[in-house]
Amino acid sequence: MDIENLVKMANNIGQFFSAEPDINVATDGVADHLKRFWELRMRLAIIKHYQSGGAGLSDISKAAVAILAAEQEKLVNAGNG
């Protein structure tokens, strides 16, 4: 997957949810959107990118991908990842 494009897409999602004044609600909104609409290999690619520094990701997108990364890690640890 073209990581540059995925970063751009994630940031675009982040921009929409940034209008939400509560940062936690906004971050959850981005994370939920990624889970509901991004195919697994896209999510894994953005998680990998985040884990190697997350260059280019906006703050809110980075925080949202962090949620996905944590959930993915749990799944892996549970043997379902």
Partner: peptide
Amino acid sequence: SEPGLRIPNMFGAAMEGS
């Protein structure tokens, strides 16, 4: 249970080889 690829994502995945 996982969402699939959208058309532009299919193109992206095709270029990537998957």
